[in-house]
Amino acid sequence: MTFDELLAKYEPALAAAFRQAIEEIKSGIVLRVVVERLERGDVNGAVDAMQIEPEVFSALEIALQDAFNAGGTNAVAELPKVMDPQGNRVIWRFGVRNPVAEAILRDLSSTMVTHITDDQRQGIRLALEQGLARGANPRSTALDVVGRQSRVTGRREGGVIGLTRYQIEFIERARLHLDSGDPDLMNRYFELKTRDKRFDRTVMAAIRAGKPVTGEALAKIIGRLRDKNLLLRGEML
């Protein structure tokens, strides 16, 4: 396989494994517990209740191992044919059980998963704090983070779980701009590459009317922004 062919095969597998882990986290959340802890002002307790632990990303680690092994095997296949001093052909082989390869893979997967879980917890804590700070009630704040349950699929959709801390900050800033009523700030929405352009007319109409985007319209715009950034997050990995 060429390097591009390897990417085409294993990039989707890694992204899918990441999305699987995020869905597992969302489906395991007991909203009542998160809300109760937010009502007590226990933001850290609310984050803990979401159980974002390294073990949930085991499928991602397996997908990473598969990609690593395929890359090594492919690299060995590209090595030149050589002969030893006795005239015998040197046979090149690659295996993830090689001590050096094992150490590299272990460090790579551990670093990736640790970074993902730590960043997730920091980002979610930030989102909860900002939600409460802008006056949203604990239940609404929790739903903005964990996502709302679809009546069609029964699965949680939207929310910020899976996004990086910087993506969460970026989306919260977009919310503040749209809710500001300031035309200059609201116009920055059109600079966002991950926006859903179907909402452009809604935002433009609000700017022309000199009003902020609020309520259900704002919730839908921010929800789509979160969804598209989650897809981007999978591609980034």
Rank of each mutant, 00 (worst) to 15 (best):
L38F: 01
A13T: 08
E191V: 06
Q130W: 08
R195S: 03
T2A: 01
S27K: 02
R97C: 01
R37Y: 11
I124R: 00
V96F: 05
A142I: 07
V90I: 03
V30D: 11
D42E: 09
R195G: 04
G159M: 13
M50K: 00
D182P: 02
P54L: 10
A174F: 01
I22D: 12
A209Y: 00
G154T: 09
Q120W: 09
V146F: 04
T202A: 12
K197R: 10
R155G: 06
G87M: 06
K220L: 13
D42G: 08
M83G: 01
T164I: 04
M112L: 14
L105R: 15
F170K: 14
L163Q: 09
F199W: 14
D4K: 14
F199H: 02
N74K: 13
F68Q: 06
K81C: 12
V152K: 07
A209E: 09
R156F: 11
E191R: 11
N44C: 00
T141I: 03
T202P: 02
V113S: 09
A133Y: 10
L237R: 09
E216D: 14
A127H: 07
L185F: 03
S27H: 15
E53W: 05
E169S: 02
V56Q: 02
L38N: 10
R188L: 14
R233L: 05
R89D: 04
N229R: 12
E61Y: 04
R121E: 13
L192M: 13
T214A: 15
I222M: 13
A103N: 09
E61C: 09
N88G: 01
D107N: 07
G131T: 05
A77N: 10
P138D: 11
A217P: 05
A16H: 09
L143I: 15
R125G: 05
A133F: 00
I124N: 02
A67I: 03
R201C: 01
V203I: 15
A13L: 04
K211L: 04
I25T: 13
Q130R: 14
E36W: 05
R97E: 08
E24H: 08
G131I: 04
K9I: 09
A101W: 05
R121D: 07
Y189C: 12
T114S: 14
D144S: 10
G72W: 03
A67T: 04
L79W: 05
T153Y: 06
I52E: 01
D119H: 10
E129I: 14
T194P: 00
M186Q: 13
F190I: 07
R93C: 02
K211I: 01
P80I: 00
G87I: 12
G45A: 05
A15H: 14
S110G: 14
E172R: 11
L105N: 04
